[in-house]
Design a protein around this nucleic acid. Structure first.
Length: 564
RNA sequence: UGUCCUGUGGUGUAAUUGGCAACACGUCUGAUUCUGGAUCAGAAGAGUUCAGGUUCGAGACCUGACAGGACAACCA
């Protein structure tokens, strides 16, 4: 697990204000909550965190930080059928990696099962909850539709004493799954469906990842969330727009529960949608389970761990979260914004190295055989402090195939017969001869170098129009490079049905390039994580792969790869 | 035919208590560069969904339309 980034305070200053901040400022001005702000990030441990959660994490932790408050991490684990410790662990790792810390405030909704049960008993005693023995279908029918009032259940007016006994029996396992549920008695005619006697508890004879077989009744989301917020002293419960219509119910429960003036306040914002990206947990799970990707942390996945393996930094993701802002408008953010964030971050901090993905052998005919000299290369032209490194140069080198054109088209400035170019940090070379095989394919170039141009400048002041990256054949590291592109070709893959979505899988999303050559420095510098191929783009050494393989981020830096 | 939410350049967001619509991404042009990257300079692109109203003045306030989204899981 990566360490915790303690620079979050700096970021807080830059965080643009949003409507949630405005509301908090108003609340503070009104003297609510004794001037404190306490938020929470409440994932259900039923999948891995993705970039959409990152927005929520940055919002919740960032908001608390901004107002000098705290943030809890709480697992909303009220449905044992979907949840697993694997997810609990990965979520903690990812939140930490993003640079946020919940201190000792790690909670589980399942910690509150006993208190929630007691509260349900209280509601029954107040005549505000009842056990309903009707089938799921009947209950659903009685709720009718949003445009017509619902019908009351025949069990709605069972006596409190009887309900108390029945609920106890539910808990002790007397009834089978689906036989009965506990419902709140609110208003079957409400235009808000969530107020038409919502379910509080259902029977689930399942083992829970934390409470084991201790319980066979489990609270519903609505019956757990607001109460958990209340018990934890959450002041602002920030969630996504789909819970907006739940708010009256959230407030109903909290009002029934509260014995002070304190009330947590639910505020909704629009979830992140990214073009070319599928974000629903259900669909991501499908991609994993059906083998369209190699796990939750496949670099093509929009998961935090996928982005991490791809070379994204926490800083870039936080910058992205700030950049997209917070509103209630549900729109689609262009992935180009995310890619911009990582490009900008990496550009400043990443070690530049040379490498060729598609090698073309070049013999420098006037360079002595058996000699290896080292040239000085700058590690990052934008940051002197990153220093220099030595790169071996010799008679036989590799260039990128596409850096040579036998019959150069207009505006092609790189190597061509008779043309002189610069090899980055070393010499000017001129192409004299093109060697082809029987099929007429170019297999080798013969060039001459100008010893006077060592270091990359000609004493006579003559200029070249291109600078090429290169590697020395004898010294280069041979590696397989995995090239990752977007998983989907459609800007809105999530806008289709699950099966249609799969039609837009990009067949080129993963390419394995054999026999790529990387300058030897890379082999000894894996700890750096990210590099930038001169002129080609970013890549990172993938710690999980067989040694020598690289993850290569085509989309991140090849801004111009699609155009001429 | 219901309730709630939301409508600002292609996209995401801004616009103190109403005061000539700003920023970022993207796009395009030019300069520069030892990455066709980065950088620098510049341009195009909305008159704020529409119609009324209040006002000296409205993206902001009011009314009414229209459009999009959410809600009818023993999911969260």
């Amino acid at each position: 697990m990566a360490g915790i980034d303690n620079n979050s305070n700096e970021q807080e200053v830059k965080t643009p204000k949003n409507f949630i901040h405005q509301q908090i400022i108003e609340d503070l001005a009104a003297g609510k909550n004794d001037g404190t702000v306490h938020t929470r990030f409440p994932p259900e441990p039923n999948g891995y965190l993705h970039i959409g959660h990152a927005k929520s994490i940055c919002l919740n932790f960032g908001t608390a930080l901004k107002f000098g408050g705290l943030t809890n991490l709480r697992f909303d684990d009220t449905n044992p059928t979907k949840e697993d410790v694997e997810y609990v662990d990965s979520i903690q790792e990812d939140v930490h990696w993003l640079g946020f810390d919940w201190g000792d405030r790690l909670y589980y909704a399942s910690d509150y099962f006993e208190k929630l049960y007691d509260f349900a008993v209280t509601l029954i005693k107040r005549g505000k909850a009842y056990v309903d023995f009707q089938s799921q279908e009947i209950i659903s029918e009685q709720r009718r539709t949003p445009t017509q009032p619902g019908i009351e259940s025949p069990y709605r007016n069972t006596s409190q004493e009887e309900n108390l006994q029945l609920f106890e029996k539910m808990r002790s396992g007397v009834f089978e799954e689906g036989e009965c549920v506990l419902r709140a008695k609110i208003d079957m005619t409400s235009p808000n469906m969530h107020l038409r006697d919502p379910l509080l508890y259902r029977i689930l004879k399942q083992t829970h990842h934390r409470t084991g077989d201790q319980w066979c009744i489990y609270p519903m989301y609505d019956f757990a969330h607001g109460q958990s917020d209340y018990w934890e002293g959450i002041t602002h419960s920030i969630c996504t727009l789909e819970f907006e219509i739940h708010r009256p119910l959230y407030e109903w429960f909290v009002n029934e529960l509260a014995d002070t003036n304190y009330r947590p306040r639910q505020i909704e914002f629009s979830r992140l949608n990214l073009s070319y990206t599928v974000m629903s947990k259900r669909r991501l799970l499908q991609l994993v389970k059906e083998g369209y990707v190699n796990g939750w942390d496949d670099p093509r996945m929009p998961t935090i761990c996928g982005l991490r393996r791809r070379g994204y930094t926490p800083e870039a993701i936080r910058a992205f979260a700030d950049m997209v802002g917070v509103t209630k408008v549900d729109g689609v953010t262009d992935v180009a914004v995310l890619e911009y964030c990582i490009r900008e971050d990496l550009n400043k901090r990443v070690q530049r190295v040379m490498g060729v993905l598609n090698p073309l052998k070049v013999v420098i005919t006037n360079y002595p055989e058996g000699v290896v000299e080292e040239v000085d290369a700058i590690n990052n032209p934008e940051d002197e402090s990153m220093g220099k490194r030595k790169v071996p140069f010799s008679r036989i080198i590799y260039l990128e195939k596409e850096d040579f054109m036998e019959n150069p088209v207009n505006k092609f400035f790189r190597l061509a017969p008779g043309r002189e170019v610069r090899l980055r940090y070393s010499y000017f070379i001129k192409c004299n001869e093109v060697i082809k095989n029987d099929q007429g394919e170019i297999v080798e170039l013969h060039c001459t170098y100008d010893p006077e141009t060592k270091g990359g400048n000609a004493p006579d002041g003559r200029k070249v129009k291109a600078t090429l990256h290169w590697v020395s054949e004898a010294n280069a590291v041979k590696a397989d490079v995995r090239l990752y592109d977007r998983l989907f070709t459609d800007p809105d893959p999530a806008g289709h049905k699950d099966k249609d979505m799969l039609e837009f899988l990009n067949p080129d999303s993963l390419k394995v390039l054999k026999d790529c050559y990387i300058e030897p420095f890379v082999r000894n510098a894996k700890a750096l994580d990210n590099f930038q191929f001169e002129r080609l783009g970013y890549f990172n050494v993938d710690p999980d792969s067989e040694s020598g393989k690289m993850v290569f981020n085509r989309t991140v830096s090849l801004k111009d790869s699609s155009k001429k």
